[in-house]
């Protein structure tokens, strides 16, 4: 619906359909919150069920986790910068900061995959115990979301490069920004309730 265009608003909010898309995406994020909450609850219930296998203390190393956290949190910041550039109508700025965001995100995913491979070599697979099943599925779901996000963002960047900044492409960029920040928030919970809690208690 291209009616109801309000040129006074930022590009991504200008058409009524775009406003509904963004609103709908917030609602979708709400559903994702519930999804992750369920995974967290499951992890919490399983977190001390080791079946005689490795525990959090045996496996977690703070260094790698810190680096992953810095990578992801920084990428959220650069993503914010990208949207800032978009609001200044700077297509090049938007694309540049998005590339940096995705590189940081890819770094995060790479490190996480390395971490998982390391655990598997130590004999801690998701089939070993309920704790590890919960761990791998929670972290893996998050990691998968990040990976899909990277792919999705690349598609949108291609569209922005080809079509420029229009109300439609701006909306798409805005939505992927929301998604990216959301995943960052989820990571903060993972860092706190899985890694920190696991290493401290």
């Amino acid at each position: 619906m291209s009616a109801n265009v309000n040129a006074a608003l930022p590009l991504e909010y200008q058409s009524e359909q775009s406003r509904m898309n963004i609103f709908g995406f917030w609602i979708f994020l709400g559903a994702e919150i519930i999804l992750f909450a369920t995974l967290f609850a499951t992890y919490a219930v399983m977190s001390h069920r080791y079946a005689g296998g490795p525990t959090q203390h045996d496996l977690f190393e703070i260094n790698g986790v810190m680096i992953e956290t810095i990578l992801l949190l920084t990428s959220s910041f650069t993503c914010g910068l990208a949207i800032y550039e978009m609001h200044r109508n700077q297509k090049k700025g938007l694309l540049t900061w998005m590339v940096i965001t995705l590189l940081l995100g890819a770094g995060f995913v790479g490190m996480e995959v390395t971490e998982f491979v390391h655990y598997v070599h130590e004999g801690a697979t998701m089939q070993t115990s309920a704790f590890l099943s919960g761990f791998f599925v929670l972290l893996g779901t998050h990691g998968l979301h990040v990976s899909v996000g990277i792919g999705w963002a690349i598609m949108i960047m291609i569209q922005i490069a080809k079509k420029g900044l229009t109300p439609i492409t701006a909306r798409k960029a805005f939505i992927i920004g929301l998604y990216w920040h959301f995943l960052d928030v989820v990571w903060i919970f993972i860092f706190t309730f899985v890694y920190l809690k696991g290493m401290v208690s």
Binding site: M46, A51, S133, V137
Partner: peptide, 15 residues
């Protein structure tokens, strides 16, 4: 082969 709800591997069927 995970152990969320199984008897083995310390799974929790009540979950």
């Amino acid at each position: 082969g995970t152990h969320f709800f199984t008897v083995g591997g310390d799974g929790n069927p009540m979950m």
